[in-house]
Nucleic acid binder design. Structure first.
Lengths: 309, 309
DNA sequence: GAAGATGATGCTCACATCGAGCACAAGGGA
DNA sequence: TCCCTTGTGCTCGATGTGAGCATCATCTTC
């Protein structure tokens, strides 16, 4: 019997509800299965490009159009779908990241889920989470350290050493970009629900979709630095503090208000509209809009992240 | 008739011959076709993961083993292989980047080709090349500027504006990371041989393989910053100037010797072996070796690139 | 053996960037 | 009015970066 191959496309759509990052999932009520990312097969004849295929599928599955889209990663492990071992075709999936403004209503069966509920250790806005501390400890205490019994990761590091980088104990050492590394470490340690973990490291998603979620969050955080992606989440005009809240939500880190302000203004990313927003509580805030021209003036028109609250 | 799908894997193997970056190509002598990157189908039953599939293929096609491997991008446009329009299966290719130390002998039919011969404008070690200047000029003079007739890229920019970022005229503004952007700009302008160009912008490769080459070079340059990938190209021990030559070769830019030295030593990336190399001509150079432990000490154990010669 | 060439190495200086904090401005509510 | 809240401007020191001068240790040449 000749095995079959299928090319899947998988969409991670991220949006923002206030300062809560969300992503679109599909439920299968009553099945007891975890939620999954919207995904479907490539239409070999119809879909001109992979990106267009994703856009088509998003419209079909969720009933919305998506603006910014970029390719994330292609997942093709033979055992990524357990059914493949039982005669199902092997599914290679190309994952895409898309950004959506606001949280528009989705087709029934689909909903926006809070992103950090599935990656709870990634939200370090109120300080590096207890979970992250536990993860560090679980590593060191797992007896899987640098000794001869230790399992060794792709880089040839012991788990304990990898934990020291991924889940640093020293305050201020938290690296918000190592999202995928952290998830994979938890997975290998058997702490993630997908790998048999009973600990409270967040509810699982179907198949390897939580890995895709981690990839996407890492990519998005990295992208902040050198592309003006934040504005995909914001309205036409906004206050600098709203902008800051969005960056903080994505980066999962608190920022220093005055420095953030300095950075954004110096970079020429935004220009004042002249209007003010009185709904802030204290002194009215000046309104700004994004300046598309920055892209021709600066090499990295993103928001490099000034640490500290 | 139901159309068929094929999953291809494509390997971009980069190595270094002295200070000349090379990559592995396969020739089809007598066919008149341009050289191509080693690529092959996924073995649906045999290949456990995509990465292992690439390793298997590299061994089969080139007769060598490869150390560092990472996924680059997945190419799936319907028209990427012109044969698809004539009944051939649609081929979606996952491209991988691999790094090889030295230039080991390859299987007959394969050879190492100088990377910059196919992307000549990317080697700015002797100053930003005349080609890059021409490219800038070709854009501005193409009548495809910001006017109503202008074609518009993915970001919504006119070609002229994109040229200003990709091929900057101001000295010191050259951004060595925008490799892919530059190639795509030349492609869209019809200057690349693949898009009908007669200008001397380097010989083409098969299909979209030059795009893959550009992706890979861009990724490699980016990776230098935050991962110690340079050492994949170096012997066990080396002098700091040899290290610098390797970084320069990849980045395509000349560096300031003393600052490079300061950076590498301060970063703790290397440690002195105590030995010296007398073959340099002048004062003997101290020999160094890579310190694998940096990965646990520094967040970004790479070589950020200090400009200027 | 001395002079000069060549490349390695150490150091300084000006300047930009960044983290952190003080102080004040401009509004609202008690 | 006082006080609380948020926005905004500015300063200061620590650190990083681009650029250049000076010296050192070897080889080559005269």
């Amino acid at each position: 019997m000749r095995s079959a191959l299928e090319l899947g496309l998988c969409a991670l759509l991220v949006s923002l509800d206030g300062d809560v990052p969300m992503f679109a999932v599909l439920d299968e009520p009553g099945s007891g299965r975890p939620p999954r990312l919207p995904s479907d097969r490539l239409d070999i004849d119809g879909d001109e490009t992979l990106e267009l295929a994703v856009r088509r599928q998003v419209t079909a599955h969720l009933g919305i159009d998506v603006g910014y889209v970029e390719q994330l990663y292609t997942f093709g492990d033979r055992d990524r779908d357990p059914r493949t071992a039982h005669g199902w075709p092997r599914v290679v999936s190309v994952a895409y990241l898309g950004l959506v403004r606001g949280t528009p209503t989705l087709t029934p069966g689909a909903r926006w889920a809070p992103l950090y509920s599935h990656l709870p250790w990634e939200d370090a806005r109120e300080g590096v989470s207890v979970l992250a501390m536990q993860a560090h400890g679980a590593c060191a205490g797992s007896g899987l350290g640098a000794g001869p019994r230790s399992r060794v990761g792709a880089d040839g590091h012991g788990l304990e050493e990898r934990a020291a980088i991924s889940f640093p104990m020293a305050p201020g050492k938290w690296d918000e970009y190592r999202v995928l590394e952290r998830y994979e470490l938890l997975y290998e340690l058997g702490l993630a629900a997908e790998s048999g973990g009973a600990g409270d490291y967040g509810p699982p998603l179907a198949l390897d979709h939580r890995r895709i979620l981690a990839s996407g969050l890492g990519r998005l955080r990295g992208k902040l630095r050198y592309r003006p992606v934040v504005f995909e989440f914001l309205e036409e005009t906004f206050t600098l503090f709203q902008l800051q809240r969005v960056v903080e939500a994505i980066a999962g880190v608190r920022l220093h208000k005055q420095n953030f302000r300095r950075l954004v203004e110096r970079g020429g990313l935004v220009e004042a509209t002249g209007g003010v927003d009185r709904s802030t509580g204290g002194r009215p805030a000046a309104c700004f809009r994004f300046r598309p021209e920055v892209r021709f003036e600066r090499q990295a028109p993103g928001i490099s992240i000034p640490r500290g609250g």
